[in-house]
């Protein structure tokens, strides 16, 4: 505390900058609080502990995807393929498990498939320098196709109990997916803030040309970034099968858009280089609270979509005006 005061006295302009910075970070948090307050007043049972845990559990899949999406967008790219990756990984891991493969190995294989699919996206974006939008638009389609081909187009019932535990179980009363989500965000926070790879992501997003001239292996870093996005989509796929007790080739359709919306709500810029993982989790919660509240308020599903879309645009607009 004392050092804080000293710092404030010694570096007045910097302190103001920090305050502004803090305010910027808090912006979406304030919107989240307002949203929660509104729901607490109008939606019955919203503030119940079970409902809170439910919101987190439901948000966990989008949250895991959004963590990967954050680093992709930080480099100035986009990954549209995460929803399809999720489906393919889920289908493959459940089929392996049902065929008698050890469930842990089946789960790891599901995650690995996601990682491989992401690496291909990364390679095409980094080396022949194709636009990530086009690359992942393509893989979104072919990975979905693969999920259909492998599964024969039907949902596959889940038999293994470990899968069910991962998706629907709980530890000490808290659902397992929440732990997984928490681990992903803690690790991602650490990687982005304290590792060379994390700082290189910011450098590449801020100025790719300068990064290259600084000797950063830009291609290698980009491949890693997309591979991580794919890996997280694979993990999300496994969690999802455990939640639905089945693997569905249609699973995760449109989830990439939820993930992108969460990242944008979290203040990460499409320009690249600006953004934080903490922001993304707030963005995820804004969407989660809104969805949950609208359900509790018995809002018609079609109207839910209209409200959700409108809130996303309004929130980002508000954020832009505030800056």
């Amino acid at each position: 505390m004392q050092t804080d005061i000293q710092a404030a006295a010694g570096h007045a302009p910097m302190n103001r900058q920090r305050l502004l910075h803090l305010f910027n970070q808090l912006g979406m948090l304030i919107i989240l609080m307002l949203l929660i307050a509104a729901m607490a007043v109008f939606a019955p049972n919203f503030m119940e502990v079970t409902n809170m845990l439910n919101i987190l559990k439901q948000a966990s899949i989008t949250a895991i995807l959004a963590a990967g999406m954050t680093i992709v967008i930080l480099t100035g790219g986009i990954d549209l393929s995460v929803g399809s990756t999720l489906a393919l990984s889920g289908v493959l891991s459940v089929m392996m498990s049902n065929a008698g493969v050890h469930p842990v190995i089946a789960m790891l294989a599901g995650a690995a498939v996601g990682c491989a699919a992401g690496s291909i996206n990364g390679y095409l974006t980094a080396v022949p320098k194709l636009p990530s939008f086009v690359v992942t638009l393509g893989s979104m389609t072919y990975l979905r196709g693969l999920a259909f081909v492998v599964s024969g187009g039907y949902p596959i019932a889940l038999e293994n109990s470990l899968f069910k535990f991962v998706g629907s179980g709980d530890i000490l009363g808290i659902p397992t997916p929440i732990y997984i989500m928490a681990i992903v965000y803690v690790v991602m926070f650490y990687v982005l803030k304290y590792t060379m790879f994390g700082r290189h992501i910011y450098a590449i997003g801020g100025n790719e040309e300068a990064a290259r001239l600084t000797g950063i292996k830009v291609e290698r870093s980009l491949i890693k970034v997309y591979a991580i996005s794919g890996l997280l989509a694979g993990i999300a796929g496994v969690v999802m099968t455990g939640r639905l007790f089945s693997a569905q080739p249609t699973g995760g359709t449109g989830y990439e858009l939820d993930a992108i919306a969460a990242v944008v709500l979290g203040g990460t810029s499409f320009v690249g280089g600006f953004g934080r993982i903490q922001g993304t989790i707030i963005g995820v919660l804004v969407i989660g609270v809104l969805t949950n509240g609208l359900v509790l308020l018995n809002v018609d599903f079609y109207w839910q979509m209209i409200v959700k879309g409108g809130v996303i645009v309004a929130a980002v607009l508000l954020d832009r005006i505030r800056r």
Binding site: R199, Y202, A203, G206, N207, A210, G273
Partner: peptide, 13 residues
């Protein structure tokens, strides 16, 4: 600006 600086990062970084 185009080739040297990382506009999103601190002096230190």
């Amino acid at each position: 600006k185009e080739q040297g600086l990382f506009p999103n990062l601190s002096v230190k970084e």
